[in-house]
Amino acid sequence: MTTLVTPAVPGPGEMPQGAPPSVRPGMLPGMLPPDTPPPPRRRGWWRRNIVWLVLLPVAVAVAAGASSFRVWAFWWPVGLHLEVDRVAVGERAHLEGEYYDTFGLDVPERAQTTVLRKIDATVTSVEQVDQLPAPEYGDPAVIPDGSVAYAVQVHFAAELQTDLSLCQIMLVSEEGTRYGESSTDVLGSSNRCSLPDAEGFVSEQPEWDVTTYVLADPDARITQVRLGFGGPEYVTFDLP
């Protein structure tokens, strides 16, 4: 048999151990004491919350930082975002940047390692041409109606077996239009930085020259050449 017992109100000095200090002897939680002292002068809302107000900008900064991984995970590695060198046409630029070699296709020992690519490049000339040279195979390429073609000559110097894949040599107009952004050129070559007879996507000589062709709008004023390998690093060559 269960007996329900209403707990007696503890008398003064009989407070059980562990009771909340805010409950005064002789009172139940929630009761207003009969002789409430006059409340101290209330501090303003801003003063009471000063700690949180100070922490708020810190919390905002931490939250922004916590979600910023998207910038370097998705945006930063794709596309040209970091200009590491800028020279005039005819001068030598140094492009240095790290990339992760997933498969090690041309150099198996580099598979699944981070590789530092260092390459020197000099744009020796940018000229408009009237016709395109015959490609290695396939039909001769013609300059389409409503387009002009530029021949861009670049001199490279790098250690042997420097990876050249995803090479981009593009012309940038005054308005920011990027011509020839794709690694594949108008003649069907799959890599603008490789020699036509190259077997893989790594350099086979300490120094070499390439000529790549870029289609552009007839009224575009070309002001820059950009060289990159998919990004984020790239170098700029200013045209006179």
Binding site: P144, G146, S147, V148, T177, R178, Y179, G180, E181, S182, V214, L215, A216, D217, A220
Partner: peptide
């Protein structure tokens, strides 16, 4: 020879 997508660069139609 129909296409569902296309890709192009500036400088030509």
């Amino acid at each position: 020879e129909c296409s569902a997508t296309a890709a192009a660069q500036p400088g030509y139609a």
